[in-house]
Design a protein around this nucleic acid. Sequence first.
RNA 1: GGGCGCGUAGCUCAGCGGAAGAGCACUACCUUGACACGGUAGGGGUCACAGGUUCGAUCCCUGUCGCGCCCACCA
Length: 897
Amino acid sequence: MLDKTYDPAATETRLYEGWESSGAFAADPASAAAPFTVMIPPPNVTGSLHMGHALTFTVQDALIRFRRMQGRDTLWQPGTDHAGIATQMVVERLLAGEGTDRSTLGREAFLQRVWQWKAESGGTITRQLRRLGASLDWPRERFTMDAGLSAAVRTVFVRLFREGLIYRDRRLVNWDPKFQSAISDLEVEARELRGQLWHLRYPVADQPGRFITVATTRPETMLGDTAVVVHPDDPRWSDLIGRHAVLPLVGRRIPILADTHADPAKGSGAVKITPAHDFNDFVVGQRHDLPMPSVLDREARITLAELADAIIPVAGIADPAFLRTLDGQPREAARTAILAELERLELLEKTEPHTHQVPHGDRSGVAIEPLLTTQWFCNAAVLAQPAIAAVEQGRTQFVPKQWENTFFAWLRDIQPWCISRQLWWGHRIPAWYGPDGQVFVAADAAEAAAAARAAYGTDVALTQDEDVLDTWFSSGLWPFSTLGWPEATPELARYYPTDVLVTGFDIIFFWVARMMMLGLHITDQVPFRTVYIHGLVRDERGQKMSKSKGNSIDPLELIDRYGADALRFTICTLTGPGRDVKLGAARVESYRGFVTKLWNAARFCEMNAIAPQPGFDPAGARLTLSRWLLDAANAAVAAATTALEAYRIDEYAAVSYRFVWNVFCDWFLELAKPVLGAADTADAAEIRAVAAHVLGTILRLLHPAMPFVTETLWDHFGYGGPCSLIRAPWPVADAVTDAAEARAELDWVVRLISEIRAVRSEMNIPPATRAPILLREAAPATLARAARWDDAIRRLGRAESVTPLAGPPPRDAAQVVLDEATIVIPLAGLIDLDAERTRLGRERDKAAGEAEKIARKLDNADFVARAPEEVVAENRERLDAAREDATRLAAALARLG
RNA sequence: GGGCGCGUAGCUCAGCGGAAGAGCACUACCUUGACACGGUAGGGGUCACAGGUUCGAUCCCUGUCGCGCCCACCA
């Protein structure tokens, strides 16, 4: 016997272990079935499950389970990402707690320490994915720093280098002073800050008393200024073009140049140019061939090293002694000191409040310092072209399609991708340097040594590049590196390209675009045919969930409280296309009610000896109720299948929910009760068989969304062996005899009972009072129907009897019009005649109003002439029906007197 | 500054050219032999606003207003 309530905690772990140990999650490369492949977006190896994971993995698992049931050979590839900066940060924080740091430990020991941390905490996320029910093919789990994946990284790097698509360059990069590493454009986020705009007066050389005013938000970089530019057409400064300014504090003469970069509308119209510390200035500097001295070092401290030769004492403007006090100062302190000195020298014209966007490292949270360094770059502009073409040609499709625009916009204007990071945790760049700096890029040290020997004619000592690769470089290879590439494995041949990539829009650039670029270039195939983009998880008020805001909900806690199925089903119902998912515990709690409803429906079935009948053939179903249910199940299955195929998880959930609750429970089981309650008849036997059959359909239909409770019931009822629902066939339409007739009949029964209930409720008839139901002016077919459903009507309509009425209705009776018939409910002593008159009047007016509206439409010649025939015909029918209703209601009202 | 998305019942959202929908919340009644994590019935909406296209617009077009997000030169 099933317990009175479903206890998820008691079943989930056991079922998951059952599935996993039986190999139910495993792909089968030897299978004759068509493959269906999904690559997990690899979570950070040291991370733990948050609501965003719960969303994406629930969606993926539902799709995988659906396709698996459809008979596809599914591969859901698991794995984790080494997450360079994030993981290194965690371990560094650990070290700080122990009073040490990575430089004290040294590279080798530090890396050992990270591997140790990975060994300790790397299993957390995969354990948590199991709690969610994710049916990943665990024996195939990969890690981005596995030997195999690392080899793939080196192979790709070497190849792209040889093709000239990876190169070393000295240029401005986004420098994160906290991590002391370059980061990519994508890892920079603009934060709005309220700062100041300082107007500095630079003396014009050889024109005593003349100044050119420049406005800046970063006065500390002025030491590195190598020019001032003004717009060629700006009359304020045109006479100074070609002259020089004397750079205050430093004393160097810098040219005043004409350049359209200067916007006359902004600041003073004159711009100081600091090519080594500003991206725009860098471009201007290149254009005018300006020197580019760095005046900030890797820690964002002032450094005068590159300035030393240029410092010229100038009376009243530049004092080398002051400059020396700045050397080694952090940028903030230098700013204060420089402003004070300029003020003292009367070179600070004014200070204005100024709100502006300041780039910050998204992980470090500190302001980025544009810095001239030598880094490795990937020529993304070249790789982007095939990626753009693949989406344009539809070889890869985004769902929803609108995200293609986002994808295109970014790729069409893509900048060189800085792929080197000055970190330790990650794939070390496979480049070695000879004594003279000659670079040898090779898959390993031996190969590099051989290349060096060939180049120098003798063995030389090589040193490997200290840097590691951007984490997203290895993630970009994930769809094929996990399948064994560069080896030509059977898995690669069979499961690549993958079918669908499921992820949030926040990593379209970081990851999706990189996979497209690298995948197409390396394999000549798109890495996935579809990209399904879901929204972000937010709290109930629509705020982004974050630890710092304290509004995040722990999915594990929700699973503990309500069960994984309730959480999963909630996520499924809420994840509409292009919509964020607003989720709170209350929602999960309410959908737990659906899990309970299913459970109780199953309990009812069990109590009524409903059990699967081997060899049952739905086509042989004889009873109208049976055929109606089978037909409704067909419709639900078809709608659910279409929805899942179109990635409409929300619609799939809604269709399933409505069928189970509103069709199976509310009407079928209720209508079946009289039959089941009667003696052991042939009718009862058929109802049992059909109920069992449809319950089986329901369990299969819901399994992708609610795997645990459905598998529990499947096992319990013996639809298959233990843990077999996961691989049970997805339901298809059953053959149903005369489905239209069954639909029409049950539609009438449902409407009749609903009308009776509505009148009783409105008339405040106590539930205990059973009233006779009289059918007036009913056609013989209607009376026959009523006779067939006598039990059900009496039970669900709380009726004493259902009989025809030949003559006029009794005085104290409620009346309802249903098609051609009038339902008369005599309620002597119970009915308030005034209320009934009011009610009938209202109903009549409603019907008359409706008729009026349709009549107006039909009177419109244009409508009749131009609207499609079906629409006009439909309106004519509706008009007839409304008029008849109005007439009958008016007659009923008249009978009340 | 550029782009995208969203404004439909108290809340969360579906519908996107031919009768305004669901879930939750609310109200009334009901411990009826599966389920009170339940049942039955009910109230509640000029579908943001203004124009336009159409026989017909919540749905298509244009504009306005609100909200959110992404990208973008820290003068």
